[in-house]
Design a protein around this nucleic acid. Structure first.
Lengths: 199, 199
DNA sequence: TCGCCTAAACCGTCCGTTCCGTTCTATTTT
DNA sequence: AAAATAGAACGGAACGGACGGTTTAGGCGA
C-alpha cells in the first residue's frame, strides 16, 4: 500500500455481492412475522431467528423496520393486468393488484400490517406514497385524461378526489373492518368513480 | 410537591372510587404520547411518568394498550351537529365529527395513531368497530332508509357499500397520505354518495 | 378494614449496535 | 496459471438501554 498517486483513482473492488438467498429468507420471515404478530409486536429478533440471518445483515440493507415490512408486502403485489378494453376495466386494473394481494393467502394480514408500518414509520411512509404515486396516481391520471379528451367524463376532475374515491373503500375494508374484499371489488369502485365523473 | 393551587388539576381523591383526575391525566398523557411517538413507539412508561400515575392504575382500568389509545382518541370526537335540513348535510353530519377531530390541533396525529392501534390490536379493533356501528352505520342506515322511502334514492342500496364510499376517502387522507382534510370534505363525500344512489 | 392510589422493583423481550470468526469474490503477486 | 491478499458480506453472540406486564410495598381516604 502506501504507493504514490493512484489512490485518488478508484481502484474498483466489488467483492462479494448481496446474498439473494439471505434476502429472500428475510423477506419470507418478515411476511410470516407480520401475519402472525402484526405491526407493533413485530420483532426483528424473530425475523433473524426464522431466517437464520444476522441482525447485522438486516440493518445493513434496510434503513428502518418499516421499510423492511413495506418491501416484504410490496413484493407480493403482482403486476397490473393487461388487455382491458372497457373504461371501467382499465381503471379497475389499476387497483386490482392490491385487491388480489389482499385476497391471496396471508396477504390480507401482511398487507394490513405493512400499511400500518407505512402509516407509523416516516421513511416507510415516504416509500409507500412514492409507490402509490407511480403505481396508482400516474396511471389513473393517464386514463382519466384520455377519457376526458374523449368526452366520456367531465373535464374538471380532480386527481386527488379521484384517488380518494377509488382506493379509499379498499382501505376501509382492509384496515378498519378487517373484512375480506368482495369479488370484483375493484371493478365496482371503478364504476362508481366513472359514474361520478360522467359528463 | 409542596406547590398547591392552580397548577395542579389534581383534586383530592374521594375514596375507593375511580379517580377521575387520574384518568383524565392519563388520557391527556396518552394523547400527547400518541401525537409524539405514534403507535409502535408508544410507551406506557412515558404515559405513567407524564401523568404521574402508576402503571398499575393504567393496567387496572384498560385491558390493553390499544383500547387505552382508542379511548384517548375517541374522547376527542365531538357530538354530531344538529339541525341539518338537506339530505347531503344530514349525511355529512355523521362523519363531520371525525373530520373536525382530524383538523383540530394534534387531532390528526392522535386520531391516526389510535386508528393504527385499532387496526393492530384485536380488542381495540373490536371496540372501534362497535363505535363505528353505532355512530356511523346506524345513523347512516336511518337516513338512507328515509331517503329511499321518499324515493330520493334507489331502494337497492347496500349499507356496507355506502359506508365504504362515505368514510373510505377519509381514511385515505388520514392514514395513507397523512394530508390535511380539506374544507367541507364530509359534505363532498356525502354528495358523492347521494349522487351514486340517486334514483 | 377495604379499595384505590403512587412508586419502585422485577423479569423477559426487543432494538440497535458492536464484536468475532468465517466465507466468498476480485484483485494482486508469484 | 496458481497462490496470496484485501475487502466485503455473512451467521452468531453479546451488550446497554428501553419497554411491557406483573408484583410488591407503602400512603391515603371512606
Amino acid at each position: 500500500m502506501a504507493e504514490s498517486g493512484t489512490k485518488s483513482k478508484r481502484q474498483r473492488r466489488e467483492g462479494p455481492k448481496r446474498s439473494e438467498s439471505s434476502q429472500a429468507a428475510i423477506l419470507d420471515a418478515v411476511r410470516l412475522e407480520l401475519s402472525e404478530n402484526g405491526w407493533r409486536n413485530f420483532s426483528v429478533d424473530n425475523v433473524a431467528r426464522r431466517a437464520s440471518a444476522s441482525k447485522q445483515t438486516i440493518y445493513r440493507w434496510w434503513p428502518s423496520i418499516g421499510t423492511l415490512c413495506l418491501d416484504a408486502a410490496l413484493s407480493l403485489v403482482p403486476a397490473q393486468p393487461e388487455g382491458a378494453r372497457d373504461a371501467a376495466q382499465r381503471i379497475a386494473a389499476i387497483i386490482a393488484p392490491l385487491e388480489a394481494t389482499a385476497r391471496t393467502g396471508d396477504g390480507n394480514y401482511v398487507l394490513r400490517a405493512a400499511l400500518l408500518a407505512a402509516a407509523d414509520d416516516d421513511s416507510a411512509g415516504e416509500k409507500w406514497r412514492t409507490w402509490l404515486k407511480t403505481e396508482i396516481r400516474l396511471p389513473l391520471r393517464n386514463v382519466l385524461a384520455e377519457l376526458a379528451a374523449k368526452q366520456v367524463i367531465r373535464r374538471d376532475w380532480d386527481i386527488e378526489d379521484a384517488i380518494d374515491a377509488l382506493v379509499g373503500p379498499l382501505w376501509h375494508r382492509l384496515l378498519i373492518m378487517h373484512s375480506p374484499i368482495p369479488e370484483a371489488y375493484s371493478l365496482r369502485q371503478a364504476e362508481n368513480l366513472l359514474a361520478s365523473l360522467r359528463a
